[in-house]
């Protein structure tokens, strides 16, 4: 039955209009080199041991732990002396209203309230067919910056992933993201709606560093991408990074072939993003105010 259906389609489709947009083809070409390098670096191991649950095998492959609801948690502690690029994390702990800079730092918020977050998704198209399969959050916790990542090994685990995010939120949390107000937060809202769960991010104050960077770095950087800020403001050059746009393929590689190698690389990429946010914020706060007008006020996320 299915073969005859495929035959019927094969007869029809060659004559049908092709819908491969030109930019997608070009992008694929540019990425080919990156992909080839990744293949060399990671080899082609099958990660999933026979009989193991998806969460257990993914946890083993990523050096994480399998937790309730069938999701995987990765946790790393970074002491404040840790330098990301040429920026020490300690600067984050020292942020206060005295250094308003580009952020118009609100008096009442303490650095420990800040919740840095970033998602890895199945695409950038948006809409109900896009989901976040990896969530990373970072926060100051005593003498450490604690970075926690959650991954779903199956679609069925998505509600647990969203519940884990909700568990990271406190009443006084302030979200910090890069382009998260229009992308990540609205994606989470959509996923929660589909999972029939309340949106844990709804109503939280949300500081989107993309907007701050736009003002602070106007004319100083070639563009307002995070990577440009890393090179131009943080002294950071990533090596062997898995580009964010390969995130969808890291996910399908795991789903289809049970290979976690790209997910491991993506988890590292996600950690680097969050660390960059954590040092970018004090860097922008330290910029002279004249570069930063108009300052970006805190806004509530939708």
């Amino acid at each position: 039955m299915s073969a005859s259906f495929a035959e019927r389609m094969a007869r029809l489709v060659p004559a049908a209009p092709q819908h491969t947009p030109a930019p997608a083809a070009a992008r694929a070409g540019a990425l080919a080199a990156v992909i080839a390098r990744l293949e060399r670096l990671h080899g082609a191991r099958r990660e999933r041991a026979p009989g193991a649950t998806p969460a257990a095998s993914l946890a083993a492959a990523l050096d994480g732990e399998s937790i309730d609801g069938g999701i995987v948690r990765l946790r790393r502690n970074y002491p404040l002396a840790y330098r990301h690029g040429d920026q020490p994390l300690a600067r984050l702990a020292g942020c206060s209203q005295d250094h308003a800079g580009a952020l118009r730092w609100p008096r009442r918020i303490a650095p420990a309230q800040l919740l840095f977050f970033d998602t890895e998704t199945t695409g950038l198209a948006g809409g109900s067919g896009t989901l976040a399969f990896m969530l990373g959050v970072g926060r100051l916790c005593g003498a450490n910056f604690v970075l926690t990542q959650y991954l779903m090994p199956t679609f069925a685990a998505e509600p647990a992933l969203l519940a884990a995010l909700a568990g990271e939120i406190r009443a006084d949390s302030v979200l910090v993201s890069f382009n998260g107000r229009s992308f990540d937060a609205s994606l989470i809202a959509t996923r929660c709606r589909l999972a029939r769960r309340p949106d844990p991010l709804a109503g939280l104050p949300h500081l989107d560093l993309l907007h701050a960077l736009r003002r602070a770095a106007a004319g100083q950087l070639p563009n307002c991408r995070l990577q440009s800020a890393e090179t131009g403001l943080l002294g950071l050059a990533r090596s062997d990074d898995l580009p964010g746009q390969l995130a969808p393929r890291a996910w399908t590689r795991w789903l289809g072939e049970n290979r976690a190698d790209w997910l491991a690389a993506l988890a590292r990429h996600n950690r680097d993003d969050i660390l960059s946010l954590a040092v970018l914020l004090p860097r922008l706060a330290g910029e002279p105010a004249r570069l930063c007008e108009p300052a970006v006020p805190l806004r509530r996320s939708a």
């Binding site: 199945t122 695409g123 198209a125 067919g129 996910w251 399908t252 789903l255």
Partner: peptide, 8 residues
């Protein structure tokens, strides 16, 4: 589940 990075 939909897994393609596209907006059909």
């Amino acid at each position: 589940h939909w897994i393609a990075d596209s907006y059909p």
